[in-house]
Design a protein around this nucleic acid. Structure first.
Lengths: 357, 357
DNA sequence: GTAATTATTTGGAACGTTCCAATTCTGTCA
DNA sequence: TGACAGAATTGGAACGTTCCAAATAATTAC
């Protein structure tokens, strides 16, 4: 009952030309006569033809599927959602489509989705690898000539392009800002020590302390889950310290929010009684009370850049693996106690969110 | 240099069987001898074979691509991000993959991505249509036998399945809650009047007022963009009213946040001086200060349900268009002024967000 | 030991496109 | 008018799979 698919041959027959000509029209070749082209297009419209990319792709077995895969750990995290949107923007305007999957930080899931994407013939992959991803995991892909761009977290051993934000510089500027505000004991709270991102941010913290002429005390570095709950836990430990800190830089914004919660639970007002600075500048950061001073990393920009890099590699056929570090900037709001001072270095405005159903 | 693709024929040759047998193994047919199967599988692993779904799909020209398309308006809105995650969960565990695209509320973009998805041979589509989507827009899809499930916003004329939350009941319970708290003049703030969702929520508001024995005053319904900015604008107008309201139900959480902002700008404390209730229960709702009382719609659940419905239709070959309305529940927090009273009807706990890079 | 079953395996012929080499159709020029 | 160039068109032959009907191998029944 459902009528058979309209194929290029049907078009050819109806337009009185050969299938080759129709194919030529499809690819916008300049070899075909203007009148014929018009005729063919008309017939296509009339019969409701839909291009079968699968078939085309089969013939021109190359990286021409125009599908690019995107894999993230946690889409519900607005950081990654924005990243995906950034990718989608450039990918879509280049005539590609996006295959998006969510690993939920599961390495098995990641393997599954990547395999599935491969079967579907993606022409490139952008991935924010799940924790503990093996650097060799993407080896087969690149061996098969499929460009891979790693974002957000870098994969030390892998010979793929990557684009990460400047965690070191970001954390350093956060620490320097707090030091300039007069703080001497500044804690580093949250994050899992086994990750590269943690290492980078911690390194930035140490450099910042040093640059400000402050001593580094191991007790002030308190690891915890990079989540709100982790933040609560970390600030608890920090406050229990003999000489308690007066300020903290946090592994990320979620931790920072948790720290604020923990402070309030102890009748301390974030901003006034204790300075806290986050990292990421997630959407909630500016809406929270007090608004969070944080290091803005522009996830959407990373997505766009990653996509551009990937497309470049796809078009080039073969490209060197390059590593890019994107700049970050400190956005001063209220939680650091800098008061209502106009935000410094605020740069471009953050797009206000729409919540429209 | 890049060695040619390993095909089923290569496997056949290496394993000393015919390509047909390899194909049988691929599909897990029970016709093939256990020993042969093992042998073939071994060879496949050894040669690093990757299945070419495109080719397979070409042969068995049916709805067997195992790709399902997902189209949302605004991925950066956590509501839709969660929805997409819900879809991904069930879709992925059913062995399908997800094609996700973002229209950014642009109807042209929507047309583009849907067309592109069709070319790629999706076996089904889940869509939260952009505003002003024509009901006939998905006609060709269903005519071609591709099941479509519309979520969140319904499309009156279209003969497709849809799954929307119970906007009416949700808004009604919000109003009744405020009335029970003693409020008499309750406003309805935000939202664009030309949408079905707006109509439903407004209807719920009216029913709620009526049920509580309160009069409906047209002046208390103030439309505005369904965004934070819209909320600020709406509360401004509400407060300028002769007899100002003492409480408001908002079109959604974003509006509610804007209303809170607007209140504070006038030295009114949300919760204490003016009660506000949102709609959606986005992640930020519980983290905000004051925590937002809102109607929880469980976007992830909608995503899961939508995906299940779609898969059912795909498997059934042909399914009737059904419409499902999902239950919602009021989550009482602080912004309604119900104080620190333990949340009533809190149901299942909301998963705490992780922000882990 | 042969016939009848049953269990495996196997060559093509599709599927809808693109590519290649070859063909036909225009004129144009001597 | 015939030869020639360029423009436009065209039949196959791929691409990597699945399906079908048919062939072969293994087993059982008489």
């Amino acid at each position: 009952m459902t009528k058979a698919r309209v194929t290029v041959i049907d078009i050819a027959k109806a337009a009185g030309v050969s299938k080759s000509t129709v194919s030529l029209v499809l690819q916008g070749s300049s070899l075909v006569n203007e009148a014929t082209r018009a005729k063919v297009n008309a017939v296509m419209r009339e019969l409701g033809y839909v291009y079968n990319r699968g078939a085309a792709n089969l013939r021109q077995a190359g990286a021409k599927s125009r599908i690019i895969g995107v894999v993230v750990n946690d889409l519900t995290n607005s950081f990654f959602a924005e990243l995906a949107v950034g990718v989608d923007m450039v990918v879509q305007s280049a005539g590609f489509v996006q295959f998006l999957s969510n690993t939920g930080e599961s390495i098995d899931r990641q393997r599954e989705v990547v395999a599935s994407m491969r079967e579907h013939g993606i022409s490139g992959l952008i991935v924010s690898p799940a924790r503990a991803t093996d650097a060799a995991d993407f080896k087969p892909l690149v061996a098969a000539g499929i460009p891979v761009v790693v974002v957000v977290r870098n994969l030390p051993g892998a010979k793929v392009s990557s684009i990460v934000s400047d965690n070191r510089a970001g954390m350093m500027s956060a620490v320097k800002h707090l030091a300039a505000l007069g703080h001497k004991r500044i804690a580093f709270l949250g994050g899992f020590p086994d990750t590269a991102v943690f290492d980078d941010r911690l390194a930035g913290y140490r450099s910042g302390m040093e640059a400000a002429g402050l001593d580094y005390h191991e007790e002030l570095v308190i690891a915890a889950a990079p989540s709100r709950a982790g933040g609560v836990e970390a600030i608890g430990k920090a406050i229990a310290l003999g000489r308690r800190p007066t300020a903290a830089v946090c592994f990320n914004d979620a931790v920072a929010f948790g720290v604020c919660d923990g402070l309030r639970a102890r009748r301390l007002e974030p901003g006034a009684d204790f300075a806290v600075v986050g990292f990421d500048d997630v959407i909630e950061a500016q809406a929270a009370v007090p608004a969070l001073t944080t290091v803005s990393v522009d996830p959407q920009g990373i997505g766009r850049r990653g996509a551009q890099m990937l497309l470049k590699q796809i078009n080039a056929g073969k490209a060197e693996a390059e590593t890019v570090t994107t700049a970050v900037r400190l956005v001063v709001r209220e939680s650091c106690g800098a008061g209502k001072a106009a935000p410094v270095r605020t740069g471009k405005s953050v797009k206000s969110k729409q919540d429209a159903e």
